[in-house]
Nucleic acid binder design. Structure first.
Lengths: 145, 145
DNA sequence: TCCTATAACTTAGCATGCTAACTTAGCATT
DNA sequence: AATGCTAAGTTAGCATGCTAAGTTATAGGA
């Protein structure tokens, strides 16, 4: 059997994540997971832990711990949602905003460079990836309801 | 900022991995990581821990622990390489072979069904993924040497 | 022959996934 | 107003990633 799509996708992302992690740890003293969480809150307007879990593709308990850590490091502000309900309202602190702003496009550009170097058409691959994610999302949502 | 390729790829794989893990745990009582390790040894002929780490996109310490666990569960045979050197020769036990054989194409087929359902052309996406992985591999190898 | 270099592997300890089970806050029905 | 439903969040404990540092086995040169 040859290496198949599921294995290749898994390994590609594992290696990209590790590369990103090393750069972030060395240059900015933050992990890639934490950086992604801050980016979703700061750039994509995610404002509850439940939404952050969905956006990151992880479970609520993972996010619960992550937000606690980010808050204790002074990067994220976690407050009861003033609109009520058992929710937290997530916002970046000034320090958190600085981190996100300084790294804003760094990884996307590095990845774009890799893609260009490989000869794979960026726009098409990005669209395929987004489509697959949306489809998976829909399928999972339908099977739960 | 919109969701970008690096985030979408990361999240797509996180969700695929979790889905795979749940199926395997429920139906076969094994984690996806362990299953991938067994598959590489059994189907792709990987025979040392170092090669397994490369094949999985993880580090040697991760594999060292994984092989110990798989050996203790009776799925993998880990022996000093008779050809010498500080190496282990990895082979599947009969039980390990059974696991791999029974699951051989299950995930690839489920993923193929998802891809078909999404309308993304499978062959092209698979080729792009393989190309990106090969390119990343080359780039990393060059920067180390 | 002995010394050193190198590659493979291991150990220790931390970070961050997960599941299962529990708690909390508001809402809706009566 | 009391009851119970639902969604969001938390806690406990385990699995598996990582880095840093140490160990082991062979090979190659002095």
């Amino acid at each position: 059997m040859e290496r198949n799509l599921s294995l290749n996708l898994h390994v590609l992302v594992a290696r990209l994540d590790r590369a990103a992690d090393r750069i972030l740890r060395a240059e900015h003293n933050i992990s890639y997971s934490r950086f992604l969480a801050l980016t979703l809150v700061g750039e994509l307007g995610v404002s509850t832990q439940r939404a952050l879990a969905d956006g990151l593709g992880v479970t609520e308990p993972s996010v619960s711990r992550m937000t606690a850590v980010l808050a204790s490091e002074g990067l994220l502000d976690v407050q009861p949602d003033p609109a009520g309900g058992n929710r937290r309202r997530l916002t970046l602190t000034d320090q958190g905003k600085q981190v996100v702003a300084s790294l804003r496009q760094e990884f996307e550009e590095k990845l774009a460079a890799l893609v260009a170097h490989s000869g794979v058409p960026y726009a098409e691959f990005a669209e395929h990836t987004a489509t697959l994610l949306a489809t998976l999302d829909r399928v999972e949502r339908e099977s739960t309801k």
